[in-house]
C-alpha cells in the first residue's frame, strides 16, 4: 500500500535517511493491515487453524442441537433445543422447499437443513466477539458446498431424466426456435454448468468477506480515532461516529449471515427442483 511517490522517495533517500527502529506499535494514524493478516490464520496445531475449528464446531453444534432435540420427549409442546430444531425443520420445509420445489421436494429436507445449519453456524462467528471470523469468508467451505451442490443437482437430473434427456433439456431447452439454438445452447451450457456453482460459491464467500472487511475497517477507524495521540479533543468525539456505524454493521451482519445461508439453500432447492422437473 505504499504510494508511488512514497516508494520513489524511499528508494531515492534510502542511503541518506536515518533509519530508526521503533519500540512497539505506534497508534498514530490509520493504516489498513495486509489483507492476509485479516483472513489467514496461523495453525494452532498442524493442519488446524481458526477457520477449520469453526467449521468443525459448526458440525458439532449442529449435531449436538439435533441430538438433544431428537432425544427430548416428543409428545409435549417443544421447547428449548427441540423447539429450535423444529423451527429450523419447518422453516426449511415451508419457506424453502414448498416455495420452490413443492411437495415432491420434501425428501430433500435433511440435505437442505444440514446445509442451512452448517452455513449459518459458519457465518455467524463473524459477529461473535473474540471469534470474529466467518468461516465462509475463506473460499474453502463455499467452494466445497457449491461443488457438492453442482454434483448433487446434476446427478439428480441424470437420475430423473436419464443422461440424454437431462443434457437435452439443459442444452436444448424446448420451446426455443431451432435457429436460436446456436445462441441458446452455449449460454445455457455456461450458465447451468459453470456459472451456477461459481456464482453460488462467490456469492456466499464475497458477501461474508465484504462484511468482515467492513467490520475491520470501521473497527480500525474507531480505534485510530479514539486512541489518537494528537488533537484528542477533536478526534475522540469524531471516533464515536465510526463506532456507531460499526454497531449498525454488526447488527446488519446478523441479517446477512442468515440471509446468505437462506439464499444458498433456496438456490440449491431451485436447482434441484429444475433438475427434477424440467418445466421450461
Amino acid at each position: 500500500m505504499i504510494s508511488t511517490q512514497l516508494a520513489q522517495m524511499a528508494s531515492a533517500r534510502v542511503n541518506s535517511i536515518l533509519v530508526q527502529a521503533t519500540e512497539g506499535e505506534s497508534t498514530r494514524g490509520f493504516h489498513f493491515p495486509p489483507i492476509n493478516t485479516l483472513l489467514r490464520w496461523k495453525d494452532i496445531t498442524p493442519g488446524i487453524n481458526k477457520v477449520v475449528l469453526i467449521s468443525i464446531a459448526a458440525a458439532l453444534i449442529g449435531t449436538a442441537l439435533f441430538l438433544i432435540a431428537a432425544n427430548r420427549d416428543h409428545k409435549t409442546a417443544p421447547k428449548g433445543a427441540r423447539n429450535l430444531a423444529e423451527i429450523a425443520v419447518e422453516f426449511i420445509e415451508k419457506n424453502i422447499i414448498m416455495e420452490t420445489m413443492g411437495r415432491s421436494g420434501l425428501g430433500w429436507t435433511p440435505f437442505l437443513l444440514t446445509m442451512f445449519i452448517f452455513i449459518y453456524i459458519c457465518n455467524v462467528p463473524g459477529i461473535i466477539p473474540f471469534i470474529q471470523m466467518p468461516a465462509t469468508a475463506r473460499m474453502g467451505i463455499p467452494a466445497f458446498m457449491a461443488l457438492l451442490v453442482w454434483v448433487v443437482y446434476n446427478a439428480t437430473g441424470i437420475k430423473n431424466q436419464g443422461p440424454i434427456g437431462y443434457f437435452k433439456n439443459v442444452l436444448f431447452p424446448p420451446g426455443v426456435p431451432k435457429a436460436l439454438y446456436i445462441l441458446v445452447t452455449p449460454i445455457e451450457f455456461i450458465s447451468t454448468l459453470v456459472v451456477r456453482p461459481f456464482s453460488l460459491a462467490v456469492r456466499l464467500f464475497a458477501n461474508m468477506l465484504a462484511g468482515h472487511l467492513l467490520l475491520v475497517i470501521f473497527a480500525l477507524l474507531s480505534e485510530a480515532l479514539i486512541q489518537a495521540e494528537t488533537q484528542r479533543i477533536f478526534l475522540i468525539p469524531i471516533g464515536v461516529l465510526p463506532f456507531g456505524v460499526l454497531m449498525f454493521l454488526t447488527a446488519f451482519e446478523i441479517l446477512v449471515a442468515f440471509l446468505q445461508a437462506y439464499i444458498f439453500t433456496t438456490l440449491t432447492a431451485v436447482y434441484l427442483g429444475m433438475a427434477t422437473h424440467p418445466e421450461h
Partner: peptide, 17 residues
C-alpha cells in the same frame, strides 16, 4: 481456497450430513 480449510470443512459437513 486453502487446502486444510477445504478438507476439514468438507469433512465436517459430510459427517454432519
Amino acid at each position: 481456497p486453502e487446502g486444510k480449510e477445504l478438507i476439514w470443512g468438507a469433512g465436517s459437513f459430510l459427517v454432519f450430513l
